[in-house]
Design a protein around this nucleic acid. Structure first.
Lengths: 205, 205
DNA sequence: GTTAGCATGTAAGGAGTTACATGATTTT
DNA sequence: AAAATCATGTAACTCCTTACATGCTAAC
């Protein structure tokens, strides 16, 4: 058992490559766009991860499309695409959706890939995330209650703001869950709603 | 140059020990309460850090207060307190307030210690944080604009929500800054507003 | 007198960054 | 042809967590 790079990065890469083949540099930009605020990947973690996925046969190198041909034996762009195994693995990761999918890290990635995720799994992740946040709120509220007297106004304000942020996210999740439940039942069996231009099928504003 | 544990943890420890001496187990609980949602410290990082601070002479061991005496030569609770050097170091860290103080990690800790921070530094940190968040918003907005077409509704929704969260934090900072500017000028020279019960001198709700 | 929880500590390792090294392609 | 930027890759290092090892103290 070597390597085993973080599931999250693996999922993100496979998910993006499933949309369209890409080379590393481009992939990194796309990852950072998609995962944006949550997480910025560096080459130092991306390339080793690609290397490993390659070794596991989940992705494959492709000749760069078009006429741009490398002069010498080997150099320049390497375009990666998902293999059949890679697609299978992606489905597996998208379907597992265990607790890791509702931690801060995993949730963003899973959500960004909801377009490729089964409706029932989407719901499970949203609900798991909500439960996770509610637990966290209980913890913070308890901590505030227990130490209110020993806290100065700044610390209190920090907690108040933090708590409000989490409450906001819970409300957001509630809306998403309601919207999923409404749209869901029809397509629950197979439905993986592919990317749309924002027709309103997705989460409403 | 050995160790050099993260400035953030060092600051947090010194800041908490400045309020009152404490042993490690207690310290960890208090750190996790104060920094709560942002960061949870484990013993595996706390104790090595304490060890190093001890070696640098910034903190010192103290005989546990009260009648509870260890039977054998040495064991049981070790209470740590700030030394003179430690207080100096704490002041230095609180005053430096460079870019690290407005990154996600540093900001929470600095804010939690605002009760021990000079008014002008508080303002500088709040403004630095605001600028940082505005930069981030620009980045995300640009990324959305550039790739709007290639994004499905879920990814878009994720960005929308993320952006809204950041906007909310900016509004919060604006209120805090206004409140600081209003209360500040009188005490700008020396003022380090010690902990209060929440009399309204601090950030208003 | 044994379980539960307080208390301290270390070793191994995971996950990722920074800084570096290098080459290809495009722009000026 | 120099500079900028695209593109790939590695090595060293940072920071933290998990899991383990150990002992004290209180409660049942």
């Amino acid at each position: 058992m070597v390597g085993q790079r973080s599931r999250v990065l693996e999922l993100a890469i496979l998910g993006v490559l499933h949309e369209t083949p890409m080379h590393g540099y481009e992939l990194r930009k796309r990852l950072n766009t998609i995962l944006g605020a949550f997480r910025a990947i560096s080459y130092g973690s991306l390339y080793p991860c690609l290397k490993e996925l390659l070794a596991q046969g989940l992705i494959a190198e492709e000749a760069p499309d078009g006429p741009a041909k490398p002069r010498s034996g080997r150099r320049s762009k390497i375009v990666y695409r998902l293999t059949a195994d890679g697609k299978e693995r992606l489905q597996q990761l998208l379907t597992e959706a265990g607790p890791a999918a509702w931690e801060d890290d995993g949730f963003g990635v899973h959500f960004a890939l909801f377009g490729q995720t089964r409706a029932d799994i989407r719901l499970r992740i949203l609900e798991g995330r909500r439960t996770r946040l509610e637990e966290r709120m209980d913890g913070v509220r308890g901590a505030i209650a227990r130490t209110r007297d020993r806290m100065d106004s700044y610390t209190l304000e920090l907690h108040r703001h933090g708590l409000e942020s989490v409450e906001r996210e819970v409300r957001w999740l509630n809306e998403l869950i309601a919207s999923e439940r409404q749209a869901g039942p029809d397509e629950a069996e197979d439905g993986t709603r592919r990317p749309d231009g924002g027709t309103g099928a997705g989460p409403a504003g």
